[in-house]
Design a binder for these strands. Structure first.
Lengths: 142, 142
DNA sequence: AAGGAACTTAGAATAGTTCTAAATCTCACT
DNA sequence: AGTGAGATTTAGAACTATTCTAAGTTCCTT
């Protein structure tokens, strides 16, 4: 089973679980996110998938991205003013935003860190998710 | 010296430091943020200041907010799709976003935590700032 | 093969923000 | 007090990102 098949099946399964159909458009949008794990905007995804399915519309790209988010296959991230970006990495991780280039990198987190961070919440605050965004520069040694 | 005077002077001083003038519009926008420490959008600030200076324009509110951000008196925050929100709390803190109500609360951080979190960055990543956003629900005991 | 729901599409509509160009204000210098 | 330069404000146009709408298409189910 190739990774592509795996992803395609994971997609079909998650969609079915929500009573939704698999479609060429949804597969294509999902694979556009998986094959380059940067954090593209809807417009960027549109540009990529159009090379493979020339008639796809931007509205469909938005629809598919929203569907993928609903199915918990993709996360929508907003860390600055401007278009929403999409991230197919579902493992807990932080984002590093390089302010010089605008590029975004995933940062793995030690398994205990999120729990420790949640400990700072006063009683009465119940966090389901924690987003961590670093902003700064990456140096040449990266 | 009242707190208002203090803030007004802090504003005048920071503006002067950047070669900018103090104006009634800038004072009013700043005080609209300080007197209610929620996290208003530009539109909400506009609604508040209009009651005191009826002729102020929305463009001016945007201009003033941007100026305050440039002078390091206010932080612009974006943690979801939608309008930018503005926060006059300059101390290091996290945000808790109540997904049921949309309300945002400041969460104080222990002084060592940000340093610890930065330790997870691999070599070559140099973070100037770290944003932490909790998402979840607040319970009645808050 | 007919009906119906899910899906896609193009284009219109909307929301939030920035831009533009003209009017106004303020200050330093006479 | 008067003037000119530059900073600031303003209304409205323009722009960007996204959502909505209504029509057309696909694909199951009977």
């Amino acid at each position: 089973m190739t990774p592509t098949t795996l992803n395609s099946e994971a997609l079909a399964q998650k969609l079915a679980h929500s009573g939704l159909r698999n479609t060429p458009q949804r597969e294509l949008v999902y694979s556009a996110l998986l094959t380059r794990r940067d954090h593209p905007t809807a417009d960027e995804v549109y540009a990529r998938v159009r090379t493979e399915l020339q008639g796809i519309s931007l509205a469909t790209v938005y629809n598919c991205l929203e569907t993928l988010v609903q199915c918990d296959l993709v996360r929508a991230v907003n860390f600055e003013r401007g278009p929403t970006r999409y991230c197919p990495n579902l493992a807990p991780h932080a984002h590093f935003h390089d302010e010089a280039t605008g590029a975004t990198f995933d940062i793995d987190l030690p398994p205990d860190l999120l729990g420790k961070i949640k400990d700072v919440l006063p009683p009465g605050y119940d966090a389901e998710a924690v987003d961590i965004i670093f902003r700064g520069k990456t140096t040449a040694t990266r």
